[in-house]
């Protein structure tokens, strides 16, 4: 009993300290800004992402219907969360803390910004600051671009990064690149992070059984892992690199969980057979009772005739 009290007290203190503790964001991350301006499109995209990834705990913004957890997840429309600046929210979503998971590998940075765009739509006082210059510190003054292609012969995807300045084009070398496939829930990381070679190429191996849509298409996204050095340039490309997949609905075939018309045959047979057998015996017994009556009636008539 004493040990239980001790454990409870300890847990209480831990929770209190977590609740009381300020969630500190490193100074160099605080100032981070979106590279694009928030508009209706980003807000709508953010709402979709929010519904998929955040709503189960944080509830609908403005309704305070977040999950009853300790510490409380909180409603993102409230002042407590809105007083964070963009960089702070970006950091908190990306890194996570305690029960709040890290979304770094689930969402791309653009997607996190879309979510922030949605959250800010609940804050009338909010005025967005956009990062004015989109450029990299490694290739000052250049626009960095990427090109993604599918090498079907050796089942790999090649990402080529190059920096363009005026009319000259140089390969971006020694840059770490990550490749993702867009999935219904978050992103699937393809292979591991690759560093571009001298010609600016990074080669990613497509895993076996990479499922695509009904035409075998997948939507891939490449981005630099160090966005501070190479910028937030990214590239979304549809490639026919996946296996053609026609999803089968879970209620398409006969199954235990399906409705009665699609019940497994064996269970239909067993049930019906059981009912028929029991009923036929019952009917047989009813007939017997009728027989008793007929015999009695016959004997009664015979007696009255005599």
């Amino acid at each position: 009993m004493r040990s239980i009290i001790l454990i409870l007290t300890f847990l209480h203190l831990v929770f209190q300290s977590i609740q009381g503790q300020e969630w500190k964001v490193p100074d160099d991350k605080k100032g981070r800004l979106s590279t694009f301006a928030f508009d209706d499109n980003t807000r709508m995209a953010g709402q979709k992402l929010y519904t998929l990834n955040c709503m189960s705990c944080h509830g609908t913004p403005g309704k305070s219907n977040y999950l009853n957890l300790v510490p409380a997840p909180g409603d993102p429309a409230t002042e407590k969360i809105q007083r964070n600046n963009d960089g702070e929210i970006f950091y908190k979503i990306s890194v996570g803390r305690g029960q709040m998971p890290s979304f770094r590998s689930v969402l791309t940075s653009d997607e996190v910004w879309n979510i922030i765009s949605y959250l800010r739509s609940f804050n009338k006082l909010y005025r967005q600051q956009v990062k004015s210059v989109i450029s990299s510190t490694a290739y000052p003054g250049s626009t960095i671009n990427m090109f993604i292609e599918h090498i079907s012969s050796d089942t790999s995807i090649v990402v080529t990064a190059y920096a363009e300045k005026e009319s000259s084009r140089v390969p971006v070398t020694e840059a770490g690149i990550k490749l993702y496939v867009h999935r219904t829930f978050g992103h699937q990381v393809v292979d591991e992070e690759k560093v571009t070679d001298k010609s600016g190429r990074a080669v990613f191996r497509i895993p076996e059984k990479m499922h695509g849509d009904s035409d075998g298409n997948i939507l891939v996204s490449a981005r630099f892992s160090d966005e501070d050095v190479f910028g937030t340039s990214s590239k979304d490309t549809v490639l026919a690199a996946g296996i053609k997949t026609i999803p089968v609905s879970l209620v398409a075939e006969r199954a235990m969980w399906n409705n009665v018309r699609k019940a497994p045959i064996w269970i239909l047979l067993t049930y019906c057979l059981g009912v028929i057998v029991a009923l036929s015996f019952i009917v047989l017994v009813m007939v017997k009772i009728r027989d008793i009556y007929i015999v009695g009636k016959y004997l009664e008539n015979k007696a009255s005739e005599n």
């Binding site: 017994v285 017997k288 004997l299």
Partner: peptide, 23 residues
């Protein structure tokens, strides 16, 4: 049901009972 204690009725009743007791 017009029971008159006839042997035939007893016979039918015993049959019916046996079916039910097994069922």
């Amino acid at each position: 049901v017009k029971w008159v204690n006839h042997d035939r009725q007893f016979q039918i009743m015993h049959q019916a009972m046996r079916i039910l007791l097994i069922l």
